[in-house]
Nucleic acid binder design. Structure first.
Lengths: 202, 202
DNA sequence: GTCTATAATTTGATAGAC
DNA sequence: GTCTATCAAATTATAGAC
């Protein structure tokens, strides 16, 4: 039955849900089977091992975490527009996939080689070289302050990613409920670009 | 032997090292025993269970992650000085304990209740209420722009914590070696306060 | 393809000698 | 206090019926 790959897809969906929340070592094959509404044996029938299922999930998570960024970042938009669009798109994407950032950070920290591997196999597709060059050009033209492009990119990523990855901590310490937090993230879509662009003005 | 608690301390040190790197579910009692140069039975002799050892580690990690901040943040320093000192102290502390941020974020994400629990038992000692009030006072006095204190604090934390928590990812994507990364973090000690203070100027 | 039953391995925890 | 040996439970993986 379901020659069409319906079962395989439901396994993938279940695996994604469990792995993203619990990480590799915290996830249980039984959890995934339960979530998919099947039994453990079938997991091994479709994918040979836990490691193999995880690889798929990790790959897809990386593709959500990175390439959407790179598309904007390697586009031909003017610098300030690019910053504005990037922040909006990225915060929006991560808000829709809130477990992705911490999952990626945690798993890469467990095994940095895993990322290096993917970067090579994707031929460094998501290295922001063009963006760095664009910043340098603007500096030389005297259009913006003489900042370190790498530092600027780290600032931009930090301001977008941290509020998602650190949500439970921030909520706990600042005592914010879900509604307040959603509002706060929405505000950041306009406030973060302002901050970043201001930091570039001479 | 070692009636003086030498063994207990070496277990704590070993547990800290292993748990901080691998997280609760990724850590193995055997790893901790090996690291401490003893056997598993002795772990259970000193601490009853894995959970109990972990609690100690988590507690200490929280105390590294939070209170040092709060001391500065609840001090009587003028706002701009406070920001400068906070960033310097915090980046320095986290650089010395690079596994702490991701460990805390990950474990809180696994079980947000664990943080809430600690916050209660510490009577919200590290809630930045005083800092928020200080920002509001400066706004009313017309000394700084009318910003959201919560957003400002999130920015400050993001710019300090993310470069440490995301180090392996950033290194991979931007292709930076250890020396370059250390230099980059050092630069941030002066650059991040500038950025934050600029964002407050009317 | 999907299930039940079970094997094989890992891992947290304990018993008991020294 | 510390060790060796071992248990019991949990967990990944497979065999084999349908």
């Amino acid at each position: 039955m379901s020659r069409d790959g319906k079962t395989e897809q439901s396994i993938k969906d279940a695996a994604k849900k469990i792995f993203l929340r619990k990480g590799f070592s915290g996830a249980r094959m039984q959890d995934i089977a339960d979530e998919a509404g099947i039994n453990k044996a079938l997991l091994h029938y479709y994918f040979r091992s836990k490691e193999k299922i995880f690889d798929q999930v990790f790959q897809e998570a990386l593709e959500t975490f990175f390439p959407r960024i790179i598309e904007v970042i390697n586009s031909d938009l003017p610098l300030f527009d690019k910053i504005t669009v990037f922040v909006r798109e990225y915060i929006t994407t991560l808000t829709q996939h809130p477990y992705i950032p911490l999952f990626i950070l945690h798993e890469i920290s467990q095994d940095p080689q895993r990322l290096i591997q993917k970067l090579i196999s994707m031929q460094n597709e998501f290295r922001p070289q063009k963006f760095i060059a664009q910043i340098q050009t603007e500096i030389k033209a005297g259009m913006i302050k003489s900042v370190s492009p790498v530092q600027f990119i780290i600032n931009m990523l930090a301001l977008c990613i941290f509020p998602i990855a650190g949500k439970p901590m921030i909520q706990g310490v600042l005592g914010l409920d879900e509604i307040q937090y959603r509002l706060l993230l929405e505000q950041r879509i306009t406030e973060v670009p302002k901050l970043l662009i201001d930091s570039l003005k001479p």
